[in-house]
């Protein structure tokens, strides 16, 4: 085989590999975001449809109360959305669906609720994980969280306002104590209604995790309108 053919084939291979790498970077940095934004919007639409249906049922005649109760007590279904989270610190328009479970596929469609932790607003620790980079960058501004910042959630019937109590805490990936009912290292001593957010640290790595803790500050029914933290 002439040298010319070998050199040409080799350079063509190099160009192909280079193009592949560039395409992959485009996929990771841009396309996963496009897809995640679409998926998250769809999850929020699903939630709002479900809530609208249920409130119609509640306002209607006869069996009105049943769906209302069912809505609050129904167990979360793995991979299904059940709440929407708002964090004013991440931007006034920032809102993401919260899905049950922390599987890879679930985290592509929204934030993931650790299945073994407490339900939203209940006694114990309601723990949620989210991507910091790629897949829509939901927790990109995680280190900006400061004590007093509001984390607001709604399950369609109630607004829950949690308040961050300390700056994000950096820990190791195996440190499951941070999502305990009384999270370790959080400074909380008594059982209470807590919220834990987790994401990766550093931004593009996976050697550590970044944790934020909050405590339930106020609740109000959705009929009472948006809580103060979400009003401008």
């Amino acid at each position: 085989m002439p040298v010319r053919v070998i050199v040409r084939t080799f350079s063509e291979l190099c160009i192909t590999v280079g193009t592949l790498i560039v395409l992959f970077v485009v996929y990771v940095l841009f396309w996963t975001g496009v897809r995640a934004d679409r998926a998250m919007d769809r999850q929020i639409d699903r939630l709002q449809d479900r809530w609208a249906e249920q409130s119609l049922g509640a306002d209607g005649k006869g069996d009105g109360d049943a769906p209302l109760l069912a809505r609050n007590d129904a167990p979360y279904k793995d991979g299904d959305p059940f709440a929407v989270m708002y964090v004013p610190r991440f931007g006034f328009t920032w809102n993401k669906p919260v899905l049950q479970g922390t599987a890879t596929g679930t985290l592509k469609k929204g934030l993931g609720h650790y299945a073994r932790t407490a339900r939203l607003g209940q006694k114990g620790n309601f723990a949620v994980a989210g991507h910091r980079r790629t897949h829509g960058d939901p927790f990109k501004d995680f280190p900006e969280l400061r004590p007093g910042d509001a984390v607001v959630l709604t399950d369609g019937t109630t607004w829950f306002t949690y308040r961050i109590d300390r700056e994000p805490y950096r820990t190791l990936p195996g440190d499951t104590g941070v999502i305990d009912p009384v999270p370790r290292k959080s400074g909380y001593r008594e059982p209470g209604r807590y919220l834990t957010l987790t994401t990766c640290e550093p931004e593009w790595g996976h050697s550590h995790r970044l944790i934020a803790w909050a405590r339930l500050d106020a609740t109000q029914p959705v009929e009472a309108g948006k809580p103060g933290a979400l009003r401008r």
């Binding site: 650790y114 941070v178 994401t199 593009w204």
Partner: peptide
């Protein structure tokens, strides 16, 4: 290929 990259590790219980 993407889950093989480190950006997916956002939980503390290694799931």
């Amino acid at each position: 290929a993407e889950p093989l990259l480190p950006f997916n590790d956002v939980t503390v219980d290694g799931q």
